[in-house]
């Protein structure tokens, strides 16, 4: 950069103001979502280090009080509610498991139960459709191949999980195998892990995208398989 021009610093400062302003507005635009993420993050921290006899129990009391309005807040997504339910469920079972009892913990436990009850269940529905059944001419064994595939998948999970610390690292590895090596078992196992994580409140969209890419990278054995692999 040429520093001899006196206008350089003026331009840089003007650019600095514009960028700061952009970032401020971008964060402000996400403020409602950020407040939710902040609350989820706090609860996550509490649930990870929860000790019924320690400070986290006090933090939980504060959290339940600060975020009591969330029980009925429509701004929370179904996934957020699932995450909260999972974390509170973990904490609740920790309280029960340790057998620690105090008026505060009993109160918190009751509050968690009220939370779980009032938050309700997610209303998201999955509609499964399939074409009308056509009787097969030959009665083939359709169970054994699935059992064999499941056994292979368990072996693969054990193999990949041996050196990996977290399921997300295993999933990353599986998706690479599925896409680059066209490993069908890895593809099926990735789909299973993604669905499992989604059920447990993880955000899985980036992995779903990669699963589709891996699916499209598979060699296609029939027209039927090809149409199933197309993104919908």
């Amino acid at each position: 950069m040429n520093h001899s021009l006196p206008t350089d610093i003026t331009t840089l400062k003007a650019l600095d103001v514009i960028i700061d302003s952009f970032l401020d507005r971008a964060v402000a635009a996400k403020s409602a979502r950020l407040k939710i993420l902040e609350g989820l993050n706090q609860l996550d921290d509490i649930s990870r280090g929860f000790d019924p006899t320690g400070k986290p129990a006090d933090k939980l009391g504060d959290w339940l009080s600060d975020y009591s309005a969330w029980k009925t807040d429509p701004a929370l997504k179904a996934g957020d509610r699932n995450r909260i339910r999972t974390a509170l469920g973990n904490i609740h079972s920790q309280i029960g498991h340790r057998g620690v009892s105090s008026p505060e913990l009993t109160k918190m436990s009751a509050e968690i139960e009220r939370w779980q009850a009032s938050a309700g269940k997610t209303t998201r529905k999955i509609v499964l459709r399939r074409q009308s059944e056509v009787a097969e001419e030959v009665t083939a064994d359709t169970i054994t191949p699935i059992k064999a595939t499941l056994s292979d998948m368990i072996r693969l999970l054990e193999e990949k999980g041996q050196s990996k610390g977290h399921i997300l690292t295993v999933l990353d590895d599986l998706l690479k195998s599925a896409e680059l090596q066209h490993n069908r078992q890895a593809l099926l196992l990735s789909a299973f892990v993604i669905y499992y994580l989604r059920q447990n409140g993880y955000l899985v969209e980036p992995y779903v995208k990669r699963l589709r890419q891996a699916e499209n990278a598979q060699p296609h054995t029939s027209t039927e398989n090809r149409s199933d692999a197309e993104p919908r």
Partner: peptide, 20 residues
């Protein structure tokens, strides 16, 4: 509940809010 990357994204936004 939150994976490490989600947690990091959340902390990044909170840091931006504080202009850090």
């Amino acid at each position: 509940m939150l994976n490490p990357a989600e947690k990091a994204y959340c902390l990044a936004l909170l840091a931006l809010r504080k202009r850090d």
